[in-house]
Nucleic acid binder design. Structure first.
Lengths: 216, 216
DNA sequence: TAGATTGTTAATCGATTAACAATC
DNA sequence: TAGATTGTTAATCGATTAACAATC
């Protein structure tokens, strides 16, 4: 499968399609059209068709998309056919919540270790995992061939953790710490940042400025 | 202050500037140039200047930006001068983590109530708050004139909660539930979605496709 | 004055939407 | 066949970047 020049925006939408399709399939939905999808996901049908067309011809003219077939294809595109091993750094409130959240992406990711720098937390049991010391990180990452990590430590510690991860061979980081990370170009960082989302939301609650103007 | 036609992308970057500037100021940084900022935040200096110029002339040619002055202005633009009252719906693992996370945006938001639908959780103490039943939501929201809410309930329950929030007069929603919400155009919804971020990250970890191609 | 850096215009680049031939 | 819906091209729209006069 070729990936000539796929835009970031497209890639970020694929998981949204996947999630909706998975739900739909569980409710015995076997076919969808791009306009169905558009309606349910608040998106333009043309955009959805174009997104999917980046990767192949998955639909049938006059009919729409076969749901399970499309699910399998998106999983394949996203590299989710095999359970991907991941590690989590940070066993604070958020880290613990993420461990439990696992349930939601259970079948796609395999959380194989949790690390924390605090001596009190090391050894603690979270679900089926025991919190490991940072010192074991490099060994465990290479042992399990982990390529993806989640950072859930305080902002002040995040860059240092990122450096260690890069040094351990990690290729992708999902960063929950409220700070921008500096990593080599070959490493990909995605951010999940509540505070910026919350603050930008505040902007739109200004009197009169309803935010409706952003739409049509 | 006029807000003629501010793009969403600009608004989402303002909190990032604000956070960095706040940190900088705490370390006694009194002036920054757009190229300083660009370097620290991995952004194009021209973009930063242009973003800020949407709202006024905050810099001095040949010198740069006065840090505390810029902080105050961004706060003003984002509508963060006054502590904004917010509510949280969902007292599960994530909800509890968010309550404690409060500390991080303590001075900008005031979490004034937490709600949960489960009888077991109602009455439970989280920090200084007691979990309230959903039935009290409308009353508490109007009492405290709350306009912003955080949804941290399971996906299956999220749309229903959103409907109740809209009905209670909420104007902006930060949604952590992994589902797209349907609300009137006048209501603004921001999403925080780990699973989609994680899955799209997986895409870039495909062999050879290093993700570096996205950058320069 | 010389060096630095802004604010802003123009140029580029990329993403979204509309439209429609192809076809199930 | 008639109706529906895709894949794709062209048109539009918006966002980013480069460049530079203005000026501290």
């Amino acid at each position: 499968m070729k990936t000539p020049k796929i835009s970031e925006a497209v890639v970020k939408r694929l998981p949204i399609y996947l999630r909706f399709l998975t739900d739909l399939y569980q409710q015995n939905g076997l076919t969808v059209s791009s306009s169905d999808l558009g309606q349910k996901l608040n998106m333009n049908p043309a955009q959805i068709r174009k997104d999917l067309a980046c990767f192949g011809e998955f639909g049938k003219k006059g009919i729409g998309y076969d749901v399970p077939y499309l699910i399998e294809n998106i999983k394949h595109i996203l590299n989710l056919q095999h359970k991907m091993p991941i590690v989590l750094i940070g066993a604070g409130n958020l880290g613990r919540a993420l461990c439990n959240y696992q349930v939601y992406f259970q079948d796609q990711m395999n959380l194989c270790a949790v690390f924390d720098s605090s001596d009190e937390k090391v050894g603690e049991q979270i679900n089926h995992l025991q919190v490991e010391p940072i010192s074991k990180m490099k060994a465990i990452i290479s042992e399990h061939k982990v390529r993806m990590a989640i950072i859930a430590v305080p902002a002040i510690a995040a860059q240092n953790v990122a450096n260690l991860l890069v040094d351990s061979g990690i290729r992708g980081i999902l960063n929950f710490a409220p700070t921008i990370l500096h990593v080599p170009d070959s490493i990909r960082v995605h951010y999940v940042d509540f505070t910026t989302e919350l603050q930008s939301l505040a902007f739109y609650l200004q009197t009169n400025l309803s935010g409706g103007e952003q739409f049509d």
